[in-house]
Amino acid sequence: MNKVTFDRKQLAVPYFIYLVLFVVMPLLVVLYYGFTDAEGHLSCRNFAEFFTNGKTMGTLVYSLVIAVVVTAICLLLAYPVAYILAKGSYARKHAFLMVFVLPMWINFTLRITALKEILTVLEGNLAYHPFMNTVICMVYDFLPFMIMPLFNALTKLDKSMIEAGHDLGATFPQVLLKVILPLSVPGIISGVTMVFLPAMTNYVVLDMVYNSTYIMGSLIGSYFNSYDWNNGSIISAILLMLIGFFTVFTDKVILGKEEERI
């Protein structure tokens, strides 16, 4: 009888339960802990304190600065590479792309150790340039994550669009600004999503290059070490809100584009 009642839909049940239990529940619990105090009373004190305390606001600003700089450099490096691979004269472009994303598969702490040894030889003491070293290491770590979505967006781009632009008398910079960039916006967005948030939160990179300034992730790490669940949760909650805003905002941008096409 069992076989008769089997339906392919039912295969989704275990994963659905898993998602609810271990993805949705933890987020709700974090929101609960973030908005209660140590005695379990509802309060917005942690939330308000984050935005009024000079130290935590400084951390937020510092991580935003790092994330903006790292994302910008990744974009500036990855865009030409992705464009040349996708539209240039290289044969077997997918195999070539693999060469660029291959480092992504090696453990990131080992890769940063390698870069760190090189930087130590070049600079003598890493402690003199904490900000610069952090940015270099993060770019090194995240660059493949930027190249891949850009390459995917640019390969899909119809070459005749670019040729049409040239035929109509546009120079390369004009074609780039008016044709190529607008058409690769979805790739840029997913690349930025892949890089921006890790750059705000991956505090291991800072630890490894002896940068003792905190970013948002370091706050969670230090609250975890001092068993301060409520404050750790509020930082997580704030990051979640940031991701939420970003996702809704980019969805609107992409959806807007899709409506135009229809």
Partner: peptide, 17 residues
Amino acid sequence: VPVVNADVVTGFSICIF
């Protein structure tokens, strides 16, 4: 959610739960 979320937040939230 886990795809776009920061690993720090994923780890911390599951730890809290």
